[in-house]
Design a protein around this nucleic acid. Structure first.
Length: 285
DNA sequence: ATCCTATCCTGGCTGC
DNA sequence: TGCAGCCAGGATAGGA
């Protein structure tokens, strides 16, 4: 599932192929992908040039201009199964092609998406489609002090809170599970019981896991995510808990467990990620 | 304030 | 072998 590292990889690899290019035409095969109105979308992007390509949370943002004037932006979200590829103009459409944008260099941007949850929408102002997003975990503002305060200001279980994009932007099911394992924190722990020292471990875990996953161009384990070059990512080889139910913990040998938290499959090592120390102290007295 | 459920989708899997 | 039914999963809306 594309999360921050996968979207960052897509942005980095597409940027040199798209920035400076003008959209000369296009085709929409699934209207909902572009927000429901294919004609309006194509009119908005035809003739516009890509002036910048960036990532915010799990969104891709293509800023457009037409004859030097602001022409809004295309906001992309890969959701579960979306893929973006720049291919030769005469490349055949894949079976799940939803949107194709022809470029002035003879190539074309293909948006393929088996499950049709992905989006590639045009908006006048990028902010209106980006929603309310928390801080970027790789930005300097994401510190242990901030996280600790933010966690204590709420009373939610850690896992759903870290998945909440308005709390922290860019993490999804995989990297939350991996980060909680690396920090030794239980996914069910109420956020207001996280101590400063635990917040420090969590910040360090999130930062290092995301950086490492970007270096490996994301995670590919279910046949969906591929880089724009068609390659699989490599970070799935470094998973400690995700998708490892029943397999031994690489730290302690205990069997990895899968539970459901907030309707999400959640993987953890029950020995390395025990419930909070307070609960254990109470039990032992 | 927080949690839960349904919705959107389809391929792949399970069970019979 | 065939087929019905279930499930994952990000974001969001609406209800408890």
């Amino acid at each position: 599932v594309p999360e921050l590292p996968e979207v960052e990889t897509v942005a980095r690899l597409l940027r040199p192929l798209l920035v400076g290019r003008r959209v000369t035409g296009g085709e929409v095969r699934w209207a909902r992908t572009v927000g429901g109105d294919a004609r309006r979308f194509l009119a908005a992007v035809r003739g516009a040039s890509v002036v910048a390509l960036s990532r915010r949370a799990k969104y891709l943002r293509l800023d457009l201009s037409r004859r030097g004037a602001d022409a809004g932006a295309v906001i992309g979200h890969l959701r579960m199964s979306g893929r973006l590829h720049v291919l030769p103009g005469d490349a055949p459409a894949g079976p799940h092609l939803r949107v194709k944008l022809e470029l002035d260099d003879g190539r074309a941007l293909h948006f393929d998406d088996v499950r049709k949850f992905g989006r590639l929408e045009h908006v006048a102002r990028a902010e209106e489609r980006l929603g309310e997003l928390g801080p970027e975990p790789l930005e300097p503002a994401f510190t242990a002090a901030w996280l600790h305060g933010a966690l204590r200001a709420r009373r939610r279980r850690l896992k759903p809170l870290l998945l909440d994009q308005s709390f922290l932007a860019g993490l999804g099911n995989i990297y939350v599970d991996e980060a909680l394992f690396a920090a030794g924190l239980n996914p069910l722990l109420p956020s207001d019981r996280v101590r400063l020292e635990q917040s420090e471990r969590l910040v360090a875990a999130i930062r290092s896991i995301l950086a490492r996953a970007i270096a490996r161009e994301g995670s590919s384990f279910d046949g969906f995510y591929r880089t724009p070059e068609g390659k699989a990512g490599g970070y799935q080889e470094e998973f400690r808990v995700y998708g490892r139910e029943g397999e031994p913990c690489r730290t302690c040998g205990e069997a990895i467990v899968r539970i459901v938290v907030g309707q999400r499959g959640t993987h953890l090592c029950p020995a390395c990620q025990p419930r909070g120390r307070g609960a254990r102290q109470r039990r032992s007295r």
